[in-house]
Write a protein that binds this DNA or RNA. Structure first.
Lengths: 153, 153
DNA sequence: TGGCTATTGCAATACATTCGCAATCAAAAG
DNA sequence: CTTTTGATTGCGAATGTATTGCAATAGCCA
């Protein structure tokens, strides 16, 4: 694929940051293929988690749906992408910058499905309490909020 | 169906409590059918959320799988059952006593899938903060923990 | 007991996700 | 630059969960 095709937007910051993901991918033994390139590009443009189908629809001429699934699973394995679950049985994915400050959740409108990012989370002490009570280690959590957005009330 | 068939366990307390669910169902306009009876009975015996398939396997001679799905969806609508999501794409269900004290979450072992109930939750103030920040109302949340259980560490 | 209507069983369907396999392509070697 | 090679893809088929249409059935009430 010609590199110029991927640089159609004028946003220098996004450009630079996308290139970082490309470099990050190339620093592994993995090949930089067209599907991987366009999926990284697509995810990088999103402000909310996207489904495999949405990713596919956004890039359909460049990649098969099965390859979207495979690529996303790969990205999860190498830590590029986080999976979120909005309770409708369809997995959603978001590019996650490595580092602590990327931890976040969402609130989803029960009526119109509007999504807002939530930076708040509960105190770390809760996880420690649960670890003490249950003996579990390496505790992670999945947390999403649901409600009625201002427009739907 | 003969009522005696449903009373095969010697646990008087569970009996009494199951009867409460039966009464609760009969107090609606809904019919007390064999599928609804055996599904209530099955759920009542469980200590963890069960999948539709598990429910079906536990009662297979008394009810079709499609009716398990329909009955569970009905029980959710009338508030008898809560749905939980353990991140594997299979919905799980638990009988929930009406009232505030039933609110709880789970921690699931990433290795052996062992489940433990968690009574702790984050402070109500977090929900209020999010409501203020986002303008959302009637906020609920889904929260589950994941980690390694003592046996799998 | 008989009849009305909700509910069920069964089979077909929808939809998300995965898999097998031959064809293709990125990256490294010559 | 061409060749080589193994990872990766596209395509179609297969899974597995969940839903639905419809004729048959079975609660519940008169």
């Amino acid at each position: 694929m010609k590199t110029e095709e991927l640089h159609c937007c004028g946003d220098i910051h996004k450009r630079a940051s996308l290139d970082k993901w490309i470099e990050r991918l190339q620093s592994t033994k993995l090949k930089l293929t067209t599907p991987r390139h366009v999926i990284l590009e697509f995810l990088h443009k999103q402000s909310h988690p996207a489904t495999n189908r949405e990713i596919y629809n956004g890039i359909s001429n460049d990649c098969d749906l099965a390859s979207v699934y495979r690529t996303i699973n790969l990205f999860i394995k190498i830590g590029f992408v986080h999976q979120f679950d909005f309770g409708d049985g369809i997995a959603r994915f978001e590019l996650i910058e490595p580092g602590l400050d990327s931890h976040h959740h969402h609130i989803i409108c029960n009526d119109c499905s509007k999504v807002i990012e939530i930076d708040h989370c509960f105190p770390e002490s809760l996880t420690k309490t649960i670890s003490k009570h249950t003996g579990f280690s390496r505790i992670k959590h999945k947390l999403e909020f649901f409600g009625l957005c201002p427009n739907c009330q």
